[in-house]
Amino acid sequence: MIELKNVTKQYESITAVDDVSFSVQPGEYFALLGPNGAGKTTIVKMLLDFTRPTSGSLSLNGIPSTQAECRQSIGYLAENNHIPPSLSGWQYLLRCAELLDINRSEAADHCRRIVELIGMQGRENTKVGTYSKGMVQRFGLGAALMGDPKLLILDEPTSGLDPIGIREIRQLLESLKGNGMTIFLNSHLLSEVEKICDTAAIINRGKLLVKDTISAIVKDGETLEDVFVRLVKG
């Protein structure tokens, strides 16, 4: 589903990602972990062709990430997601549906189902400018789920949310597990990752430290947080 081969990204003298290679299989719930500035968001941006690698290659479903076709069945939620304040949540979802070439009658059905899924019934027709950060995040997640994507890329999906919001997002992601969807999750919240994901990779200063199943990474008597701190602090 996702494959990175010897990917390096340099910003002038800074190496944001240093010769990283790993793959994520279909149906896997995968978490990319690392401290701030480790290169997690850079990897996500390279997957979506928002920025190009200095060397190496990335592919999605066997298609190079530089080709627009590879994003055919991908949903993406950005870190600190924004939505134009002049639109309503419904209009935003409708635009996302139209951009995925879903016809107008089907798009309305899709939007209705998604509004229900993200628990925003009754608020979908008000302007985004009146929404709280959590509500914007939910609509962002709703937009990412538009068109039933096979791969969901979530960059810090719980960023800025209160504990209740975090729990709701987690429950929503868990509810998707049976659909065969692949999830690529960038997160700081190790306890959430431990509950949701099957596999994880930890990177620090652009280098891949480990990539395995959560159960293999976390030894007896340890938590994911213990392992993370041990690996990152060297």
């Binding site: 979506l48 062709d49 076709e69 991908i74 950005a78 997601n81 134009p84 951009l99």
Partner: peptide, 18 residues
């Protein structure tokens, strides 16, 4: 860019020239 539409559009199967 600030309102998130650029990343929203370009994360879909839409080429930059479109």
């Amino acid at each position: 860019r600030n309102e998130g539409m650029q990343s929203c559009i370009l994360s879909k199967p839409i080429a930059r020239w479109h």
